[in-house]
C-alpha cells in the first residue's frame, strides 16, 4: 500500500497515474458529455437546421413556452411525478423498514420479488400496463384532470418504490442498533423510538429516495408510452412525438429544461447520500 502514497516516481500500482489510462478516461468522459452539451448549446442556435452556429437566441424557448400541448404535457409529467413520489416514498420506506428490521420465512424470495420491477425489461412492463389498463380491467378513461393520470401514476409507483426501498435500506444498513436499544431502555415506546431515533437517521435516505423516484417518474418514457392515451401525454412522450416528426431547436429547448431539472435533482440526491459512505468508512 505504501507505493500508493509516494509522490514520485510512479509505483507499480499507481494505475491512476498511467498516462494512457488517463487519456482513455478523459476521452470517454468527453464522448459521454459532448452530445448532451451540443444539444444544450444548439437550443440557443438561431437556425432551424441544427448543425451550424448562427448566433444566440432564446426564441426556441419562447416557442416551447407558447406550445400549449408541450406545456400541458409538462404539467402532466410534474403532476404524475409529484403524486407517484409521495406514494412510492411511503411504500418504499415501509418495505425498507420491513426488510431491514425483520426476519421472516422466504425473505430472500420476497426481496427478489421486490426487485423484479427493476430488473425486467421495461417494454414487458409497458405492454403489461397497456393490457391491464386498457382492455382487461376496463379502467375508466375520460375522467377529468388530474384523475385521468391515475393509471400512469399507478404504473410509475409500481416501478419507483422498489428503488426507494433499496436507497432507504442502504441508508439503514449503517444504523447503530444500540441507539434503538438505548432508547427503549430509557423508556421510549416503539412509536417514540421510531420517530425520535430511527427516523432522523433515515431521513437523508428518504429524501434521496424521494428525489430518485421523482427523477425516475419524470424521465420514464417506455412504460408511460404504453400507458398514456391521447389526452394524457407526458413530457417525454410529447418530446418523442416531436422527435419523430422533426429535429428542431424547439425539441432541444424542451430537452434542455428537462436535463437541467433532472441533473439538479440527481446532484442533490447524490449529495444527500454521500455522508452515508463516509460514515460507514
Amino acid at each position: 500500500m505504501l507505493e500508493m502514497f509516494k509522490r514520485a516516481p510512479q509505483g507499480p500500482l499507481d494505475y491512476s497515474r498511467r498516462l494512457w489510462l488517463r487519456f482513455f478516461a478523459a476521452a470517454i468522459f468527453v464522448l459521454l458529455y459532448l452530445p448532451i452539451f451540443t444539444l444544450v448549446i444548439f437550443s440557443f442556435n438561431d437556425s432551424k437546421r441544427n448543425v451550424v452556429w448562427r448566433g444566440f437566441t432564446t426564441k426556441y424557448y419562447e416557442k416551447a413556452w407558447n406550445n400549449d400541448s408541450l406545456i400541458e404535457a409538462f404539467v402532466n409529467s410534474i403532476t404524475i411525478a409529484v403524486a407517484s413520489t409521495i406514494v412510492s416514498t411511503i411504500l418504499g420506506a415501509m418495505i425498507a423498514i420491513l426488510l431491514w428490521r425483520f426476519r421472516f420465512p422466504f425473505k430472500a424470495a420476497y426481496e427478489g420479488f421486490m426487485a423484479l420491477p427493476i430488473v425486467i425489461p421495461e417494454i414487458c412492463m409497458g405492454v403489461a400496463m397497456l393490457a391491464f389498463f386498457s382492455r382487461v380491467t376496463g379502467y375508466p378513461t375520460g375522467w377529468m384532470w388530474p384523475f385521468n393520470l391515475s393509471a400512469i401514476t399507478a404504473a410509475h409507483i409500481a416501478f419507483t418504490f422498489p428503488f426507494v426501498a433499496i436507497v432507504i435500506r442502504a441508508r439503514m444498513a449503517g444504523f447503530n442498533r444500540e441507539l434503538e436499544e438505548a432508547s427503549k431502555d430509557l423508556g421510549a415506546n416503539e412509536w417514540q423510538t421510531f420517530w425520535n431515533v430511527i427516523f432522523p437517521y433515515m431521513r437523508p435516505g428518504v429524501v434521496a429516495g424521494a428525489l430518485l423516484a421523482f427523477t425516475l417518474s419524470l424521465d420514464d418514457f417506455v412504460i408511460t408510452f404504453f400507458t398514456s392515451g391521447p389526452d394524457t401525454l407526458t413530457f417525454p412522450v410529447k418530446v418523442y412525438s416531436m422527435v419523430r416528426f422533426s429535429v428542431t431547436p424547439e425539441v432541444n429547448a424542451a430537452s434542455t429544461i428537462l436535463v437541467i431539472i433532472t441533473v439538479v435533482l440527481t446532484l442533490i440526491a447524490m449529495r444527500l447520500q454521500a455522508p452515508d459512505k463516509t460514515e460507514v468508512a
Binding site: 468522459f29 459521454l32 458529455y33 459532448l34 452530445p35 448532451i36 451540443t38 444539444l39 444548439f42 437546421r49 441544427n50 448543425v51 427523477t215 424521465d219 418514457f221 417525454p236 418530446v239 418523442y240 422527435v243 429535429v247 425539441v251 430537452s255 428537462l258 436535463v259 433532472t262 441533473v263 440527481t266 446532484l267 447524490m270
Partner: peptide, 27 residues
C-alpha cells in the same frame, strides 16, 4: 459522479442527442 450522472439524464434525450451527432449532416 461524472460517469453516473448521464445515466440519470433522460434516455430519450440522450438518444435524441446522438441523432444530431450521427446524421448525414451531423457533428
Amino acid at each position: 459522479m461524472i460517469v453516473i450522472l448521464p445515466f440519470w439524464i433522460n434516455l430519450l434525450i440522450r438518444t435524441y442527442a446522438l441523432i444530431a451527432v450521427f446524421r448525414t449532416r451531423g457533428f
